[in-house]
Design a protein around this nucleic acid. Sequence first.
DNA 1: TTAATCACTTAGAACTAGCTTG
DNA 2: CAAGCTAGTTCTAAGTGATTAA
Length: 906
Amino acid sequence: MRSDSSDDDFLLARASHLSAPTISPSTDREMDKSASKARPVPAGISIRNGPVGDRMDVDSTPNGAKRKSRSSVGQAVKYKEESDSDDGAPLAKRPRPNQKKAQPDSDDEPVARRNGTKLPPSYKETATLESSDDDQPLGTKLAQRKADIEKAAVKEAKALRADAKAKKATPKKAIKDESDDEPLAKPKKRQSNGVSSAKKTNGVKQEPESDSDAPIARKAKKAAPAPKKGKAAPASKAKAVKDESKDNSEGEEEEEYRWWDAPKKEDDSIKWNTLEHNGVLFPPPYEPLPKNVKLYYDGQAVNMHVDAEEVATFFGSMLHSTLNVENPVFQKNFFNDFKDILKKTGGAKDANGKAIDIKDFKKLDFTKIFEHYKALSDAKKARPAAEKKAEKAERDKVEAPYMFCKWDGRKEKVGNFRVEPPGLFRGRGEHPKTGTVKKRVMPEQVTINIGKGAKVPAPPAGHKWKAVQHDNKATWLAMWQENVNGNYKYVMLAANSTVKGQADFKKFEKARELKKHIDRIRADYTRELKSEVMADRQRATAMYLIDRFALRAGNEKDTENEAETVGCCSLKYEHVTLKEPNIVVFDFLGKDSIRFYNEFPVERQVFKNLKMFKKAPKEDGDDIFDRLTTSQLNKHLSSYMPGLTAKVFRTYNASWTMSHLLQKLKVDDRPMSEKIKLYNDCNREVAILCNHKRTVGTGHEAQMEKLGDRLKGLKYQKWRTRMMMLDVDPKLKKKKGAEFFELDPELDQAWIEKHQAFLVEELKTKIEKKFEKDNEKLAAEGKTAMPAKELKERLKAVGELEAKFKKENKTKKVEAEGKGPTVEKLTTAVDKLDERIKTLEIQCADREGNKDVALGTSKINYIDPRLTVVFSNKFKVPIEKFFSKTLRDKFTWAIQSVGDDDTWEF
DNA sequence: TTAATCACTTAGAACTAGCTTG
DNA sequence: CAAGCTAGTTCTAAGTGATTAA
């Protein structure tokens, strides 16, 4: 019954390749044809880091078609203005009808650099925790475990429902149950604020100038306190602990508000009743360069208007950021803006006031500017501590008024009260606008949201706010629109605030609620994988991917003005490759242009579907899910459970996975440090699941090498010690066997000699340093320094060491060192070395496995903090070991509501 | 519908503070 | 006792998804 009927079809068809609305059995069968007899790999096993090389080349495609096709049609998008001008059809924002023609748009801009530049680090051997044993590609285990976990999930869902049926009124949630408050008290949206009605123009809203502070007038309604199910106080059964005694608020002004103990709010669309704050803090004005610091053009010092100079300093002060500065798009955008401002402000002049025509970026030399700023910051760093402290105090004083606001009478921390300073926009990945000037935000652009009765913060002298509104359905205190992309910037409360905490709590409760429905949802989409309605089949397939592989929803993007990244629903032809009989290879850039590369075995039906969605004439640039949008998907999801959207799956999967990984750990009698490591290992698996990455630092390789050398050094020392044993007691060779004294094969002679040289050198510098220091000390005490002779004397040890090594190399023997060496003593020495080797090895593996995985994001956003609290309780590991101070603040609700309970479950 | 707007969460990189450690 | 690192914090870009407007 899908109604993307004619009209739609027509539109789409004309734009790109669309799959048939329905699927005939024959088509279905066709997909089977090519399937070899090969035995499918069981679904759920992932193969990470498969081949990478060639496929990496996103650009080249079989037929030479460009991957990056653009919506040629009059450069689509361009809001307002444009829309009426050219091409009557406002071509959807959705790049969806992604026409591939227009491809030879080749060089109109240096954007074409796609290949070399970005493309994430090399992933040839991406992390691999448990590097140990198995040759199985990393993800495998994870996936296997995941399969188990899923099974468990189904079971639990059933149990939950049965349970619920049995005793309807007793939800199993902890704390006051949020979720099943059911008919979903829709937040009831506010309508726009003073800014509304504005239109994007070139990506930026136009001043409506409607200003004044009139707007507002929420539609306060909101389906009245919905007939809140009878369910009285949600007696949290799991955690009886909490004293239900309403918080002991005692009005205690500064006492923290234990909202998690308080009764649930009926209407959570109203975020506050009173709100007071002091607005925003503007960045300091631009400070012109000293006379002697200039920008140079073709070797000539350039004079220009301060406004232009400021822009020049934006670039000049970031020369260290080669990634940006050397990016041609960045340069181009910057240069255009720079020339613009020059033109507007009277141009550039040489020392004699003669105009300089700046037209070649390459001739600009910013180094003097860069050095100037470098010197400034160095000087700043070098200042005496007292001075720094004084400055900090001063800064704190300035900030103080903005740090907190009064929200319903309570003091709450404000998050980002600072207005973003001007600079160059640093878009990530291949952002077409990277390098454009981000202009200074003026008070006239800033809208203030504040309580009706509250005193409106005064704008900087001589200025006024764009608008002042009193929207208590919004949580932001101030807002402005940025000029580069026209994005909104909000000043909101800090993560540890009540509102944010409540939202966080709600998010996790929502994810927990999904537990109750997951089996049904999975059963449904599994069935619908075979639907003959294309739209349904695509939806089911997408759900499968989102559920199993934690893909993001994949909203449509503005191809023209944003980096090309995708999520599930926006996957394109070239992002998915199929390997018979059932392996799907994903390779695309996701959020933040982070590469997602994975090979997953999938259920055969999913494989067939994807094959079908890629069926000719589809080609590079075409949507795989051409009959699915995120809104359709989410709409469907919400039919299972109010508030269920694609995003919830990520939270659910991450927390659920963490929960089960933790449960499986054998932790009990381990030392604390190991418990922590085990926890982190689980955390890491979740991070991998969510594809949270960090760039491996440039120094990584070198660091690893250093560690490796240290490790080898230890092994060498161990060997030497054993040889000493032999020296003490030659009979040992028989007793222990020759093997015992064998040199580790990875230590070849060449390395040994290098290492010996290193040791010798090390000893030398050590002695020299010591000598110097001793002399300084003597000098300080007014005594005369030791003569150089003394140094020579001391350095004799170096020569001795060198000689010793030489001898060892020749005789292949090692003389026992130390006083009264015995086999015993040497044995303990070896044991100690072994110990150190082991810890170092672990450390190495750990670091290698961790090099490109970021644990933080999942800890902060996806893993229900209560899981961590319970783990901490259960195994007596202080919570500080898992949560930093700020995280503890952010998760106070979790820490407090769980208390010392160690039975809470996700 | 579909496109546009708006609010809020999620994300990695840049920056910083505090801690070895050489 | 600075250098060098790491862990923690700040910054702001880039997503998601609800609502509204046309």
